[in-house]
Structure formats: structure tokens, C-alpha cells
Simulated assay, not measured.
Amino acid sequence: MRARILLPAVLAAALFAATACGSGGTDSDSAAQVPPSQTASAEQESADAGESGAAQVPEVLRFTGTTVDGKAFDAKTLAGKPAVLWFWAPWCPKCRAQAAETAKVAAAYQGKANVLGVAGLDKNAAMKDFVSQTGTQDFPHLSDEAGDVWKRFGVTEQSRYVILDKDGQTVYEGVLPAGEGLAEKVAGLTG
């Protein structure tokens, strides 16, 4: 029984350790590694839209978390606009290189698209330091120490972007070195 409990944890740790800073992965313009987003039942979508008058919430955006600064976060707030989910780790140099362009895109498309950092593979204190040091505090960052959001989107290595259209469909999943091309991808969804 003990092996059944420890084996999944050991496998997950090995998987994360093997993906050191995005090396060994392939850059892909497809969403092959990301599970297809599924919309919730019509009843639930109607209830969500009716309660708030907001956009319908696709299944892919039905998760919650806590930001690196300790605030509750509900991904339903991303519904109705394109969204960039940036998966990063505080010790990753590639992630640090993407920070400036990601912050620039978040500011340029504020109100038209959402940007969410999803920090993992370390402790919250290191995540907070990364946000402060990189000047990315103007958009929310989840503290995903347990890797729940990473698993939800099928992300197995840091410095990855998952870009969703306004309906929650994945339109891009991959690495953008130094964030190059991020602005163009978001512009194509908002223009």
C-alpha cells in the first residue's frame, strides 16, 4: 500500500526534475500536449452567465487558486477574453528572459486580454521575489506549488505559454524565447 502512495509522487518529482528549464522539449504551435478544452453543461453556463451577466465560463477556466501575494483567485474572471497563461519557475533563466515581454503584453492588452502567471516548482517566497525582481507585479501570478494548474493544462516544463481564445479554446501551447511573438499572437486574438 505504501508503494501505491509514494510511486505517483516519485514519478511526478522525476518528471519535473527531467525538464530542467525547458530543455529537451520542443517548441510547438499546436496544442497537442494540452487536453482539449471542454465547455461545461448548458445548464451550468446559463447559471454562470445569468448570475453575473458575464461571459459563459468554459470548463478549462473552472479552477481557483491563491496568488503569490496570498489573494484568492478564480479563473472564471478570465472568461470572455483571450487569456495568456505563462507557466514559470523562479529559478529559471528562460522564464526571467520572458518576463519583460510578458509584462509589456499584459500592459498593452489590458482590458482586451488577460495575462496570468502560473508559478511552480519552488516555494512561494521565491515566487514573490521573482515577481518583484522582474517587474511583473501588474498582472496576477498564481502560487501553484502543488502543480495543480500545471497538470490541468498538461504543462510538464517551465517557460511555457498556453494561449486561449475568448471561448477558452487553446490556440497556442509552447515556448516563446524571450517572449518573442507573444504580442503578435495576442493581437491576432484581440484585433
Rank of each mutant, 00 (worst) to 15 (best):
D69M: 12
V149K: 00
T39L: 13
L116T: 07
R4V: 15
Q56N: 10
I5P: 08
E43S: 13
A20I: 10
T134D: 08
S132W: 05
E173R: 09
T156K: 13
A40D: 13
P93I: 04
V34R: 06
D29M: 14
G154F: 02
D167C: 03
L7K: 06
K81S: 04
V105Q: 06
G111I: 07
V155C: 01
A97Q: 07
G70Q: 07
V118H: 05
A146K: 14
L182Y: 00
G117H: 06
E180W: 09
W91D: 11
S52E: 00
A107K: 08
G24A: 09
T156Y: 10
E184N: 11
A17P: 00
T170L: 04
A13M: 11
N114T: 08
A100E: 13
S41C: 10
V175H: 05
V10F: 03
G24L: 05
V115P: 05
R152M: 11
F73S: 01
P58A: 08
M1N: 12
A79F: 07
T134A: 07
A55H: 11
P8G: 04
K104G: 09
S159L: 05
D122E: 14
K166N: 14
G70S: 08
K123Y: 09
A113L: 04
D138P: 02
I5L: 15
F153E: 00
L78E: 09
L121V: 06
D74R: 13
G188C: 01
F63C: 12
S41L: 04
T19V: 06
T26L: 12
R4H: 15
A89P: 05
V171R: 10
D29A: 15
D29E: 15
K128N: 10
E43P: 02
I163M: 01
W86P: 05
V10D: 06
A146V: 12
A72M: 01
K94Y: 10
L6S: 14
T39E: 14
Q38F: 07
A107H: 02
A113F: 03
G50L: 13
A42I: 02
Q56K: 14
V186R: 03
A100Y: 03
V105P: 02
G117C: 11
F130C: 09
G181D: 08
D144C: 07
T170I: 12
P177Y: 06
A183F: 00
H141D: 01
